[in-house]
Nucleic acid binder design. Structure first.
Lengths: 121, 121, 121, 121
DNA sequence: GTGGTCTAGACCACT
DNA sequence: GTGGTCTAGACCACC
């Protein structure tokens, strides 16, 4: 996995895990790799891996069983809530950015369609 | 002007100036306030104001006449280019974020419309 | 390292690093000293050291891994490009200056040879 | 006349006058325009024009007759000396810059020839 | 530990 | 008066 330079790696990893969860690659209640394993898999510093879990836990996306490891939450509601929050943030940033450069709603949608088509290639 | 805590002030100021430029509040070739004036107007440190102009200059949005001050570029093409780049970044981040949480194009557009309507209140 | 008074320190440091890079004293992808270390080594303020890296980064000579430090680019092409640009500027200034005082190409070359021989002493 | 952005205007004007002198466009002892006339001719601030004369005078390139105006020196030796100094500076800057990027004498001369040919087109 | 941002205040050359 | 450079020292997020 390649990381963007302008956003924290731990956030990018969380997004990747979220994506995998949504796409069914990971299941509710499934065990996640240990901090050390994750550090290897994602080629990140163990401290960063640790932070990923800490952050996910604080968002209610996973929980820790002492001595057993870290598991994805079994509460599908939490995941939906978390998704909503991410969507909210994403939308805010986007709208604000586009408005700052004078692009109105119709233009945004058009640009979005074009870009989307391009990515799908 | 109030500043958000999670983004550099100098970027927020640049966005504000860009917005004013696009909205025709500032004209091509117009003199911008001096570093010291801007520091007062935007309630920031002169060094931060200086950084705003340096960054804008590197993006081709303005230029400096030695001892005379800083002026908006006379080249409208540069401004359009800069706009396009900002839009590009904005779009990328948005699409990637939304796709990470499994939202497809139609949903994005719907969310966007809702949010837009809400902000317009 | 001693600094000339008539040129910004941060440019002189960049030139020093460039020189060391070209002479093979520094390798592609190698870690550069931290901002604070560099400040000590070059006897400059940490902010000035930071500016050196920022400027080098904008020229594509190095890149930053968050929390890890600053590294020389792995792309040898960027370095050659940067070299070419510097050479171009240098040549332009020189030619323009010499022509302004009415020295033609043959004289330039002769002066250059003499000067070069003198410096080599 | 168009001015470069990275060098003081007053130096560029002095160089222009020197060039005209060398090319015989101006003669020894000839009267130079008044500060105000020069400001108009060169499209510069009167203060800058004033500085041009102050600097040229300090280099012995011209002198002032009270109430009569400013005149080019009649001493051709002074002009040669000034030229030598300029050539010296030019050479130093050039050599230093080129060596900083690892270009040796032969390469310099070759680049110079190429560039010169290109300018002559 | 790393770099990034911000403030504060000084000095300088240029116009 | 203008911007450019430099120092000093602080706080922060990230790894």
């Amino acid at each position: 996995m390649r990381y963007e330079n302008d956003r924290p790696i731990y956030l990018q990893v969380i997004e990747d895990i979220s994506r995998r969860l949504i796409q069914g690659e990971l299941a509710l209640g499934e065990k996640l790799p240990s901090v050390r394993e994750m550090a290897v898999q994602y080629q990140i510093n163990p401290n960063t891996a640790s932070r990923v879990y800490k952050e996910m836990e604080s968002r209610g996306l996973c929980y820790t069983k002492r001595g057993m490891g870290t598991f994805i939450t079994e509460d599908s509601g939490m995941i939906k809530t978390s998704q909503s929050e991410m969507a909210e943030n994403c939308l805010d940033t986007f709208l604000q950015g586009m408005q700052a450069i004078g692009i109105d709603l119709d233009e945004m949608i058009q640009l979005l369609r074009e870009r989307y088509a391009k990515e799908e290639l």
